[in-house]
Nucleic acid binder design. Structure first.
Lengths: 128, 128, 128, 128
DNA sequence: GTGGTCTAGACCACC
DNA sequence: GTGGTCTAGACCACG
């Protein structure tokens, strides 16, 4: 399920957050489903429990999961909200990129064309 | 010309690199034009000279500028190459974002529509 | 009667204590009335019996209930004392909050006004 | 300035957050003033730097401070917003307490009277 | 067993 | 020097 890219320069806990957010937003994680325990996931990924803990902690503050101390962590039921928030975050990031594209003079047509190509690639990959 | 956002989490030297690359790619900096000296730019931006030095160093490694010891730093003449490379970098980043968009189920139509909106915004801002 | 909020961060045994104290102080539980047995309450609330046991234990230490080994747990007769102690605890907590309010510069008038609003809300809810 | 109550059961990092928020909200910390460095504060309070770091991190996410990596942490300029948010948090907590007060039958008059007393106490203490 | 907090000590990137 | 991340290992409260 969850795999960490140790080559990636972005912190492990952020990678974790992103992965779990995506899975929750896309519905791979059922509402109220229990997540792996801190310790078990730490073992599985060969990571320090503190790092998992941090990711879970921040996910809770974001409202993606809720945690019952002594029991475990569970997926928050508000899936729709999650999906929407995630969408907006992503589109905001793309808007930033588009600003840069404008700045170096990439035309809208060229840009959109590239997006279409990228989308085709994704479609292919998903079929696998 | 160049302004640094100290609130921005991205390191200053990267902000510098990005700005100078953009200016070079877009033609604001003529080929072989001399850049400000490390010390003068450091004074102007109220930044540690080491930081400027690092930015210039990496820009030279990337081939964006060349330095003549004892003289200063100059914009590399290969503008076209620069522009193309910059474009490709940017589009690669956008492709990554599109993968994420696919992952959480944003349709191509919705995505492209947002891109168009963003482009309009950029166009307006540039007029100012 | 008693319901547990599993989402609440405060430990279940404390929630139990609070609820039972309130009911006793307010007279919903008659003096010398028998409380549900540990096992039955555990079943009813789907909670670990140890948790009930702990709550009952601490309630006994506080003098809110007394236990007759082999018989069960019973509400302590000293209702007035309970009510007064509970009041004082609560007012002490509010005093702490008021200290904070002073610290950040909330005026007495503003604070009291908010209290009145809150009281009105409570009155409405109780009518239901 | 900042003192930690090790007897207090609430986590150290939360005590830190509360203290700094109060000081910022009340204006004891000027906007853009630099906070003590992680290490220095850790030394001063005889606390592990990680704990300070955590507090600072959460304060940044809350928008109370901003941090310039390699430089230090600084008080966020949006003081008014902070004060208002802090007020609302506090009043919400008091509202909870009032609900309890209602539940055990404390009348509004009695409650408000106690509040006035507490306010007088605070006023006296502040004069010191 | 669970999550939550803390310490000690290390390494990194940045300035 | 600064903040940011991570590990290792410990302790606690809770269930």
């Amino acid at each position: 399920m969850i795999n960490i890219d140790f080559q990636d320069r972005s912190p492990i806990y952020l990678q974790l957050i992103k992965k779990i957010e995506e899975m929750a937003a896309k519905g791979f994680l059922a509402p109220n489903e229990q997540l792996p325990t801190v310790r078990s996931l730490a073992m599985e990924l060969a990571i320090n429990p503190n790092t998992i803990q941090r990711a879970y902690g921040e996910l809770e503050k974001k409202g993606v999961i809720y945690t019952v101390p002594g029991k475990g962590c569970f997926v928050s039921p508000a899936t729709n909200t999650l999906l929407n928030r995630k969408k907006q975050e992503l589109l905001a990031e793309v808007t930033l990129k588009i600003k840069e594209a404008c700045a170096i003079g990439i035309s809208q047509e060229e840009f959109l064309e590239e997006c279409r190509k990228a989308y085709k690639l994704c479609a292919k990959e998903e079929k696998k």
